[in-house]
Amino acid sequence: MSSRLVVATDGSLESLEAARALPGLLDAAAVEEVLVVAVLSPTAAVPFRDEIGAAGRPGPSPDPTAPSYRQEAESAAAVVAASFAAWPGRVRTQVRSGSAAAEIVEAAEEVRADLIVVASGSKGLTRTVLLGSTALRVQHSAPCSVLVWRRPRG
Rank of each mutant, 00 (worst) to 15 (best):
P23A: 10
V46R: 15
A30W: 00
P42A: 07
T65N: 14
E33R: 15
A54S: 15
E14V: 15
S61G: 08
E51W: 12
R4N: 13
P60G: 13
A21Y: 02
R49Y: 14
A44K: 13
S3N: 05
P64K: 11
D10V: 10
S2F: 06
G11R: 07
G53V: 01
Q71R: 13
R4Q: 10
A78M: 02
S3E: 08
E72Q: 15
A44N: 13
I52M: 10
V91H: 06
E72V: 01
T9C: 03
A21P: 03
D63W: 11
A38H: 04
A66E: 06
A28M: 09
V39D: 07
L40H: 10
S61C: 06
L5G: 02
V6M: 02
S3P: 00
P23E: 08
P42R: 08
L5T: 00
V80Y: 11
P64Q: 09
V7S: 05
R20A: 12
G11H: 03
P88W: 04
E33C: 08
P88Y: 01
I52V: 15
V31C: 07
P88Q: 06
V80A: 11
L40C: 08
A77M: 08
Y69M: 09
D10F: 07
P60R: 13
A54L: 15
L26S: 01
D63I: 10
A77N: 07
A29W: 03
A66S: 12
V36L: 09
D10G: 11
A55Q: 12
A30M: 02
V39K: 08
G11I: 09
P58M: 04
A81P: 05
A55Y: 05
I52W: 03
Q94F: 01
P64T: 08
A86P: 01
R4Y: 05
S15Q: 06
S68F: 04
P47A: 14
F84E: 00
L16A: 06
F48D: 04
A55I: 09
R20N: 14
